[in-house]
């Protein structure tokens, strides 16, 4: 995830953020000094300045620690709930930190000035408590404002990226499905079957229409029940099966399919890739297994690459991986050994 500009500004690893903090602290010091009728000495002003810089640095440090994890994708109501919870936590921690820093600071100043240390706390309780609360609150409101903007910006960026990926994905899916070659092959098959095996031809047309219907109905959804996707790829597989007969074998084993959802048309991309890139003949059957495993669905096939390089843009797998990353918050796992090609796709609960 790319950091938004404001997050970059507050990144304490970059010198720029410290310069910004010093500028803000200078302004705040200037304001404080102006408000005081009897302006203190240079030492007083400098100490106020150092105090403000320290406080801002600490506040930002705490805020980053508390809020950065939120960049992990959470959406909707849960997001708001967590933000509110963390925000309250943030305020509490900041108040405590501010109090500790302020008192340490006061003790230090008193010590340097050679005054009575025992006076520090009672002076704080009697005279400085209200100004201290005001200052801390002011800083917090300012900080909160910045962090709400950061969160909002992050959410927007994420949302937009997801939308873009979705469009690309839909486009790719439609292209590969309505792809002239797919249609041409299918029509050819129908034409071959219709005369001699009218029942098989009818079955084929049914499967073909189910495949298109599924893509039209579900292609734009965020997720579908795993069982629907499995039914869909069975239809899709049958289209190949009628043409290729026993050269390709598909085993589906997903008894717990009812518990999960999945990205629409995702399994089909993997199935299509397996068929496209591997040799499938009567002697060397292509065996594709699809099974669930630890909240993942695994698509695995025996690897027998075609000797000639298939023209491929690799966009299918790349787009799928990107979409999985954005929607499921985990990565698509691709494993290739000498014998097997395995893709593990995360399922949605």
């Amino acid at each position: 995830m790319k950091e938004s500009n404001i997050t970059g500004l507050l990144d304490q690893k970059k010198p720029f953020s410290h310069i910004a903090i010093i500028v803000i602290a200078s302004l705040a010091t200037f304001y404080t000094v102006l408000k005081q009728e009897n302006a203190g000495s240079i030492v007083d002003i400098l100490s106020v300045f150092i105090l403000i810089v320290t406080l801002i640095e600490v506040f930002i440090f705490i805020a980053l620690k508390i809020f950065t994890e939120l960049n992990a994708n959470i959406t909707g109501k849960e997001f708001t709930r967590i933000v509110i919870k963390r925000f309250i936590l943030f305020i509490l921690i900041c108040f405590v930190a501010s109090l500790v820093i302020y008192l340490i600071f006061k003790y230090a100043v008193t010590l340097i000035a050679g005054d009575d240390l025992s006076m520090v706390f009672s002076r704080f309780r009697n005279y400085e408590l209200i100004p201290w609360i005001k200052t801390t609150l002011g800083g917090l409101v300012f900080g909160a404002f910045i962090f709400i903007i950061i969160q909002w910006q992050d959410a927007m960026t994420r949302e937009q990226k997801l939308r873009e990926e979705n469009l690309i994905f839909q486009n790719e899916t439609l292209k590969s499905q309505v792809n002239p070659h797919f249609l041409f092959n299918s029509l050819n098959t129908i034409s071959s079957l219709i005369h001699t095996q009218p029942e098989a031809a009818e079955q084929f047309i049914n499967n073909l229409s189910m495949v298109y219907r599924y893509i039209l109905e579900n292609g734009q959804k965020d997720s579908v029940p795993l069982q629907s996707e499995l039914n869909f790829i069975t239809d899709y597989f049958n289209l190949h099966k009628i043409r290729d007969e026993e050269k390709i074998i598909l085993d589906i084993n997903a008894q717990d399919a009812g518990q999960f959802r999945i990205l629409p048309v995702s399994l089909q991309i993997l199935l299509e890739n397996a068929i496209k890139h591997n040799i499938a003949s009567r002697e060397n059957q292509l065996r594709i297994s699809i099974y669930t495993e630890d909240e993942q669905i695994v698509v695995r096939n025996n690897l027998r690459r075609k000797s000639t390089q298939i023209v491929s843009t690799k966009l299918g797998l790349k787009n799928l991986a990107e979409r999985v990353r954005l929607t499921c918050k985990t990565d698509l796992v691709i494993e290739e050994s000498k014998e097997f090609f395995t893709v593990k796709l995360p399922l949605i609960k």
Binding site: H195, T196, I242, E245
Partner: peptide
Amino acid sequence: ENEPPAAGKIVR
């Protein structure tokens, strides 16, 4: 021809 239905059609 690797697709039996297509081969069948040519034969026919």
